[in-house]
Nucleic acid binder design. Structure first.
Lengths: 116, 116
DNA sequence: TAACTGTTCTATAAATACTAGAACAGTTTC
DNA sequence: GAAACTGTTCTAGTATTTATAGAACAGTTA
């Protein structure tokens, strides 16, 4: 499993790591029972701090996406299934927004605001 | 026009102000030619600093949503139309995500990631 | 002209993001 | 049991972002 990060991006690194896992789960590349690479491995391969990776993992844990325990690592839960189910709807919405010239941040903010 | 802000929220105030305008535009409550309340008025009524409101307005300007000039204020552009067109799709997606138990931040991050 | 508007500037305080190192406590593997 | 792995917790420092504050500037409108 590969986690990508753009150091030049204005979004925090921990958020990018979590988003990378989100994307993999939505695309079906991650399934319940799969294990995320250890935080130390991710940290060294990305050249970031261990705590930064752990913060992303704890975010995913708070969302119920992974189950974390010492010694075992971070294991994906059944909560990834809804993400995969929504994948088609999301890509369709994004495609339409793109043709309308909408910025990514604008659409994302709109979705978040609509949730309330 | 009413702009709402939650001081207890973890999202920055300027982002909340921009999101409030986004929501109004998407819901059709804002149309091209409409004028946003002056930054000083919003600042005093919300109890926040002028610069904080201006930062939100400049964000909307960067998105092309409003046109700003000294003396005239911030006027909504035709770029709001796409937002209104997407409103139904967004609410439908949010409703489905909600039934699946997805968090707002998760869905928003997913949408943003899918955009790339 | 007077009152309004956003623009620009410097400055400060607070919160957040990131890095850094160390020690701890479970789990897995041999 | 021992060794190597895992996340957890702790303190600490730096850089960036957020928000506030005040002042002066420069267009627009009434």
């Amino acid at each position: 499993m590969l986690i990508r990060v753009d150091p030049a991006s204005d979004t925090p690194i921990f958020a990018q790591i979590a988003a990378s896992v989100h994307a993999d789960a939505a695309a079906g590349r991650l399934r319940a029972g799969d294990r995320l690479p250890s935080a130390r491995d991710v940290a060294s391969s990305l050249g970031v701090n261990l705590h930064t990776v752990l913060r992303a993992y704890q975010l995913l844990r708070d969302e119920g996406l992974v189950d974390m325990r010492r010694g075992r690592g971070a294991v994906v839960t059944e909560a990834v299934e809804p993400l995969a189910q929504l994948h088609h709807d999301i890509t369709a919405l994004v495609a339409r927004a793109r043709t309308l010239g909408l910025a990514a941040d604008t659409l994302a903010a709109l979705v978040k605001e609509t949730y309330r």
